[in-house]
């Protein structure tokens, strides 16, 4: 197996994730796209770890999984809060930070 095939798969997933983050309006959908991005990164970590025969890649992939779980928890809590205040999870309508 070539290393580059895994890296390319990961970059495809990464870019699809970015497309999702930018193109989706619904907060939950944006979170799903972020999960795609994180998984792409994980594939990269494990692939490089295998290439250099270093366990660190796998360990950090595990850390990323743990942090992704935390991220989804907090992210969904925020989305719920937005939903409760505005009865919609439309992120394009949240622009009170404008200058």
């Amino acid at each position: 197996m070539l290393l580059v095939q895994f890296l390319l798969l990961s970059s495809v997933l990464f870019c699809i994730g970015i497309y999702g983050v930018l193109a989706r309006k619904n907060g939950v959908m944006v979170l799903m796209s972020i999960e795609l991005i994180l998984n792409a990164v994980n594939i990269n970590l494990v692939a490089f770890g295998t290439m250099t025969n270093n366990i660190a890649g796998e360990v950090f992939a595990l850390f990323v999984i743990a942090i992704a779980a935390a991220e989804v928890g907090v992210g969904l809590a925020i989305v719920l809060l937005i939903f409760r205040n505005r009865s919609s999870v439309d992120l394009s309508s949240i622009d009170s930070m404008k200058g």
Partner: peptide
């Protein structure tokens, strides 16, 4: 375990609670 078992379920809860 973590992703399919927990994160996706969490996301589905999110979908449900935001009344999609």
């Amino acid at each position: 375990l973590v992703y399919i078992g927990a994160v996706v379920v969490l996301l589905l809860f999110g979908v449900m609670l935001t009344k999609a």
